[in-house]
Each structure stands twice: as C-alpha cells, then as structure tokens.
Design a protein around this nucleic acid. Structure first.
Lengths: 333, 333
DNA sequence: ATCGTTCGCGGAAACGTTTCCCAACCCGAT
DNA sequence: ATCGGGTTGGGAAACGTTTCCGCGAACGAT
C-alpha cells in the first residue's frame, strides 16, 4: 500500500535510477529534476523500504551491541555514551541482551554474520580465540568495551591495577584485615573482571606483608542484596575485617546497608571502597575506583563508526586509566 | 561469500523451496529429505540473509522501542521488563532514543512505517492526535507504556492520584508547608506526568484547606543535581517548607543530599517523599509512591507480541495502581 | 557544420529470500 | 489397468531497492 520508488518515479516523470540518485546523492541530478523528485516524495510520503535497501546495497544501516546485564549501572552508563554517538548517526541500534552462558554463546555465534549488523560493540565479554576468529572472518567491524582481545579493537582498563589501588588505599589507612566481596572469580559468562580485581587485591596485601585470609573473601551474585548478604556474613564472624573492597559500587552500597544493620559506623568501624564511580557514589560519599564509563562508550562508538566507514584499519587497543577517589566511606572526610 | 539458500539446495540435492520449508517449517517435508537439508545447512554454516527474508516475507522480525532518556532509573527498569520478554523471543530489539523535542517528532514520524518494525513500544510520550492516527494507519501494533492515548493500547498509571497520595501522606503527618519539586509542567517533549502529579498535589492541599504557595514550587531538569539545587533554593528562603514531594526518586535523592548539606535532619526537620520506588529507595529509606516498573515492561511487551501474532484485536487500556510506601524519610521509622 | 566531451538520466539486472502454482509420485480402491 | 486423493518437492515470480551500462542531448572547440 505505501508508495514505492516506482510510484515516485512515475509521478515525477523520471526513471527509478534518478529517484535513487536523489535519495542517496549518489550521482549528479539536474536541479529542476531533483526538485520534481523531492516534490513527488513529499506528496506520496515516501520512505525507501529498509529491507529492500539493505538487500540491494548489502549494508544493514544497523549497529549492534551485545551487552550482558545491561541494566547494571555501569553498563547503562557505557550504553548512554554509545547512544550519544549512534543515535544522531544514520544507523539504527539493536540491543542483544545476555543473561546466561547459553545466551552468551548464542549471541556471539549468531550476531556477527553477514547481513545482521554493519558494526558490533561487545561489552564485557572477552571472546574466546575461536569466537574472535569468527568475528574477524565475518569482516564486521567490532569493538570490545571493558574486555580485551589481542585480535580485536578494544577499550579496557587494567582491573588488576584497579584492585590494587583500592586495596592499597585501605592498607595505607592502616587496615590489616581487609576483605574482598565480588562476583565469582570463575564466571560462566566468561567475565575475568572479578578475577583480575581479586589479583590486584592479593598483590596489594602481599606487598604490605598481610596474609590472605579466605574467611575475608566472598563471591556471589552481582546485586545490592547479595552485597548486603555477603557483608553481613563476613562481618558477623569472629575477628571480622575492618575494611572491605567491593567489586562494584552496587555491591558496596549493599555493604553500607549491612553496616547500618549491624550498627557499624562508617568509616570508623568499617571502611568501604567500591569500583566504577557511578553517579550515586559521589552522593553517598562512597570511596571508589573511577573508570570513565560514559566516555568509554563514546570512544567505542566513535571508533566503530569510523571503522565502518573506513574498513581495513589496523586494530587498536586502548587502555584507559583508573583513579582512586577517596570519600567519606574510607577517609572520614 | 557466505552460503545462500541455493548452495544449500544444491548440496542437499533438493530445490530451494524445500530448503525454505525446512527452515520455516512451512510445509511438510519427508523425514529423510529434511535430514539431508539440515546436514547441508550445518556443513555450510548457513543462515538465511535477514534482509532477503524481510523483503520477501514482509516482516521485519524486529520490535522497536522509542524511549526518552532511557538511562533514567525508571526507564531502565521498564526496559528490563521489556527485554525479559523480547530477548527470548524470535524478535530483534531496536532502541530509538529521544533526548530532544526534535528527536521526539522525528522518531514518532519515522519509526511507525512499513518495513521498519513489526511492533512498537513507546515509553512516556503520549502521541498527538495526528501522530496516533498515523500509527494506526501504519497498521503496526503499538503499545504505549507510561502514557495514555484513547486510540492506542496503553499501560499507564493515574499520576494525579499518585501525586495526591504522596501529598496526602505528608498532610496526614501534620505538615502544613509542603513543596513540590518536579520536571517542568509544560514539557517540550510532551510529558504530562509532572503536570498530573502537580495536580494531585494541588488537590490534596486544597482538600486539607492548605493554600498553594508558589514559593514552594520549583521546576527544573530531571536529575539528582537539579533536585539538590531546587531543594537548596526552596529550603533557604524564609518560612521554608517542612515537607517536600519530589517528582521522582532521583530528584528526591537530590533533596536528601541538600538536606544533609543544610544540616536538616530527616524526617524531623524535613520530610521527603519521592515517586517510582526504584531499588535504591528501599535501601535509603526513601518514602515513595510505588509503580510496578518491571512488571509494566513485561506486560507491555507481552501485549505487543500477542498483537503482532494476532492482529486486529481491540485496543486495551490498562491502568495500574500506585501505592504509598512509607519509609524513614517521612515517618521516622 | 563536425567532432569529442561532459552531463543527465532510463531501466535491466541483481540482491536472497518466501510463496505458491504445478507436477510427479505413491497407494488404495474400483 | 485405471482413477482419485494425498503427499512431496521443484522452481518461477515477487518483494523494492541499488548499481551500472549505455544512450541522447548539450556544449565547446575547431
């Protein structure tokens, strides 16, 4: 029922090639002819059929993003950065959500295929060797955000260093019993982030001559409630830690809540440091390790669009720095 | 370079129609033939080209969502509900983001068109009469979430009532000077939510015989910082309000921060109530008006998928209830 | 006038599916 | 044997673009 390019051509008294040229600015068209075509387009309220255009041109005009747990504050903030670049562009944006290991495998297999997307952003999931090879073979420009692969473009941080910074901060404040609450070190979806931050934690302890005590380590689901639960558990045993490093600000907020339940004062009875520096961290005086989430999204999207327009560039590996942000939850002021 | 349906057909020694039948289960195929086809598909690592499939079938296999300020906590939570339904379905999900009035108009014009999406979810933007008519004429099943239109499916709440509930709660606690901090009453993007909550606020005041004092009303941008600023302004004038109703939990958090800056104790010096009941509200003891954000998203997506599969159903208007949740920020316990 | 260039444009072919019209085959009933 | 109905499968046409080959007109130079 809607108008096609043939209708427009007929109405304007031109050939379909001319209409296409006008729409895509793909070849010179006489001023007067162009006007007539534009008029016909307006009168018929014509828009090219996306599927036909995609099939014919071989481009999808779509950027895809594979995102695990996209509602977590850090992912939302990165996504905001990505959208700030993609929305004003000519590309549609398709979200592929991951919540389970099965979905992860499925999306990494199915999404990077001809005709699906023109460019792909992957959050937080380092692809396996064979997944990375598939992606390369698909020739779809891809950028990893918050994950590293030697074969692909990526923007990431040094999580070992971040964990180290956080823990060292606590050490320097005089704490001797320091715990770590995080996501599982071995994650079914293939996040290595928790493991890396844990390594940094271990390294800082070691450097300070402090023993690692497994009683001060808990792993669990990534949520505020889980953080609260883990913290309660760890703080109610004999000889509890005096400081906790939480894998993320979200978990740290759970810790703060647990401390409140237990009547512990922050930071005197318990010092807490998180990771990410989400908006609310500042508001609630949570010490944390800052990574520039929004900017990372912007940079990733820009890098991607650039590669979509200019294929064949060498891959780039960008490591961004992390920064300790000390607030009330550790330093008293 | 990738295999096409013809390659598969040749390899399996069948016609293309048969391959298509196997893929789509669209007509009976002999057991042995089917096996051969499936084998060929596996060997060639074949996937149908999406654009070709879309063009030929006239379906896009895509659900779209138009979402203003999709990173706001309430939108994220609704979106999580939507994705929990759409992700496991056979549909891709495309996000159309809105941040300005121009984008709003553009998306509402351009998205509901043949070939763009099979179904559309619109968050928080009540379409104008002519926009709604366009949507209907496009024949694309559409569900409004957090907005009302007599012509379209929608899932919404009574914001006047919500504002009334919040304000009445404050009145019943004995407050006489009650302020309202919210988004602009006249919004360029066409939100009526703030206006409605404001009406509820006025109604509750009136009912209690309290005068409306414009000095106790501020409108501003929707952010934590803005809430903090507005609250500081309103609380530092002579005769400041003893209770504030904030348009959203986000703004309410800003109010709490301002109160902390000013050394006001909550709820004794200042009672605060928000709106939405986002996750953090419980954690921080913020009184609020609950609307079931996640469930709304689920319900909207289910309603939409249902209508995509079974067109021609009469439109549904679902009004969900709001509920007062009293916590520490108003009631002391 | 004539020729060579440039400009402007028409429309066939191609993109890779789904759909649907038929044909071929099989089997049991007559 | 013949016929009718059911089952199975082949492949042309259609979906609506973009691309590109090639033709005619216009124009400048000689």
């Amino acid at each position: 029922m809607p108008a096609t390019i043939h209708d427009v051509a007929k109405r304007a008294g031109v050939g379909i090639g001319t209409v296409s040229s006008v729409i895509n600015d793909s070849r010179a068209v006489n001023r007067a002819t162009r006007e007539r075509v534009l008029k016909a387009i307006a009168e018929l309220d014509y828009t090219p059929h996306p599927a036909a255009r995609r099939l014919s041109s071989g481009k999808t005009f779509t950027i895809g993003a594979i995102i695990p747990f996209f509602t977590r504050p850090a992912a939302v903030e990165r996504l905001r950065g990505v959208m700030s670049v993609v929305a004003p562009s000519a590309y549609d944006f398709t979200l592929f959500s991951i919540e389970t290991a099965a979905q992860r495998a499925e999306q990494l297999r199915a999404v990077p295929r001809r005709g699906r997307v023109d460019g792909l952003i992957i959050f937080s999931c380092p692809p396996t060797q064979s997944e990375a090879e598939r992606i390369i073979k698909s020739e779809i420009p891809t950028v990893l955000i918050d994950a590293y692969s030697p074969l692909l473009n990526c923007i990431y941080i040094d999580n070992v260093k971040g964990g180290y910074q956080a823990t060292k901060h606590l050490v320097e404040l005089g704490h001797r019993r320091i715990g770590y609450l995080g996501d599982p070190l071995e994650d079914p979806i293939g996040f290595f982030v928790s493991r890396d931050r844990f390594r940094g934690y271990r390294r800082a302890l070691e450097e300070a001559g402090l023993p690692f005590d497994p009683r001060y380590h808990r792993e669990g689901e990534h949520s505020l409630e889980s953080g609260r639960r883990m913290a309660t558990e760890i703080l109610t045993q004999p000889d509890p830690p005096t400081a906790l490093f939480a894998f993320s600000d979200t978990i740290a907020f759970g810790v703060l809540e647990a401390a409140k339940d237990l009547g512990l004062s922050i930071p005197d009875d318990l010092a807490v440091i998180g990771f990410d520096d989400v908006q609310l961290a500042r508001l609630y005086g949570l010490s944390t390790i800052r990574q520039q989430l929004f900017q990372t999204g912007v940079m990733g999207a820009e890098m991607l669009l650039n590669r979509v327009s200019n294929p064949g560039q060498e891959e780039m590996h960008v490591q961004l720095s992390t920064k300790l942000v000390a607030r009330r939850s550790t330093s008293g002021e």
